[in-house]
Design a protein around this nucleic acid. Sequence first.
DNA 1: TTGAAAGCGCTAACAG
DNA 2: CTGTTAGCGCTTTCAA
Lengths: 331, 331
Amino acid sequence: MAINISDVAKHAGVSIATVSRIINNLDGYSQKTKERVQRAIEELGYEPSGLARGLASNKSGTIGVLLPCVTTRFSSTLLRGIERIAHSKGYSVIICNTDMNGERTMSYLRTLSEKRVEGILFISEWVTDEYGEYLAKLGIPVVLVATHTTKFPFPSVYTDDFQAAYDTTRYLIEKGHTRIGLISGDVKDRIAGKPRIDGYKKALDDAGLDWQENQIAYGDFHFESGIAAMAMLDARSLNLSAVFATSDEMALGALSYLHRRGMEVPNDLSIVCYDDTLDAVLTHPALTALHQPIEEMGECAMDLICRGVTEAQKLVLEHFIVERDSVRSLV
Amino acid sequence: MAINISDVAKHAGVSIATVSRIINNLDGYSQKTKERVQRAIEELGYEPSGLARGLASNKSGTIGVLLPCVTTRFSSTLLRGIERIAHSKGYSVIICNTDMNGERTMSYLRTLSEKRVEGILFISEWVTDEYGEYLAKLGIPVVLVATHTTKFPFPSVYTDDFQAAYDTTRYLIEKGHTRIGLISGDVKDRIAGKPRIDGYKKALDDAGLDWQENQIAYGDFHFESGIAAMAMLDARSLNLSAVFATSDEMALGALSYLHRRGMEVPNDLSIVCYDDTLDAVLTHPALTALHQPIEEMGECAMDLICRGVTEAQKLVLEHFIVERDSVRSLV
DNA sequence: TTGAAAGCGCTAACAG
DNA sequence: CTGTTAGCGCTTTCAA
């Protein structure tokens, strides 16, 4: 890319200011001039330098996305929504795979700051003080997705985890289940752990159902941990008729365990899961799932960024249950 | 970010040239100066502008990745490999979801060019003349991943699709299967379609096995198409004992269809698949699969980019079969 | 070991 | 409608 704006200006016999106006769709030139310049651009194969533009206008046209792990269906689905809106509004997106690692995350944050991104999407992770303070100081739009915080004034887009878990448990209860197990993330996880556990317990309580802490087995949202958790639950001989797994992958793990044990879903045990990514559909039986509008969350969040929103509003998106074939009705 | 290099220079009582040398780890300053400047940087919270640096040095520190669809496990796994290496070498990665759309792809290419990316990873798609010519003109490292071309001199990283399909089919034959179906991508797909079909046919021929074109059903590598393809195969009453699906997702579709039909894998029918992403593991029975080292492909490719390689070398990575529980031995 | 100064390629007043 | 010019915040000679 040797050719620059002044080459174009010379070639078209105008000043660089005019060329600039034209490539930026401002006004202040005749149709004739415009055509001449556009021809020059064509002929020379000119492509304006984003770096120079960014430096001069203080706009990089770039957005940063921080996520714990690109390879989960949840993240990649979100990413698709984000990327779609970003592209349609002329932004590029830089991805940062944090691996849930603090140092790595801070290093990404620094890089994004240096690259002068115009906004940051912070996904699925707890906003630590260190992150929050750094983000706040940046002075650019920051949107939290599938997470939220009261400590920092960032807008956030998520679903109501407590209510969703409540509704899912309630769904099982309405199907006649009374002995319901839970495969959950860590209680210390204040976003995707605790609230879902609380919702589950509350639904049980509200229905006047007895439950014990040992009906809950813990995992890390991933497949393997779902196997282990289901094995634990099984070993406890709780006589469960249904299990609620708070991620698709953990549900698949449970399914895999049950299959190996010769147990059938939903005849021997019903399963519901949380998220409803493609994972819930790919399996057999297909899983009845609490649907989070993941792609839409990404789109919403990116939209907020593009609109430069910085007020600490909370967009709580609707969840709903998608019935498939993994729950048996007992009524 | 109001503060810039000259603020730091002033604060430290040196020239901006010295500050520049220090933040770039060049030499030409005393230890004392260095410390003074570093303190100034700390105190002021200075972060150099990537835009300005990029403009001045003609290095954006950014790499572009074009892929057909972020949400497939294949793409996101590749992305993880790419991203890991990129971050370790100090590069940021911009993702571009092409949706296999020509206009969209060209638009991304233009954006990447304007952003002055230092390299481009082109994933899983056929390199059309339009793409190839544009990419070639950019004059930056371009690496093809999971695709290749002889028409343009780009290095590429992939596995030998023909041989892999041959080996997979051969594997089934060695397990005693003689009537083997194929669920494949389109024949017109010169990368992931035709070569795999050819490998399959060759293995059959070499083993002296009869086969007919109607043992092949076509899909688009995705789940739904796997269901449909398996249904077709089933409807043709071919008396198959095994089916080879050329993607994990299509195999899952087949599995799902069979399950609904009350057929058991591997007892009633054996299944093998191609790719071996997490999808092959998440299901039950877990799928015996032809493993492509996907993450490694991403790492290799990114490594080539970082090393600035531009010779048209071909890196053909090793594939191998991972045995799980979806193939029944007939011998 | 240091600094001055000329770009890098553009945007954005300002002047005409 | 158009051009001049002063930056934007760096890197990189070239001199000292």
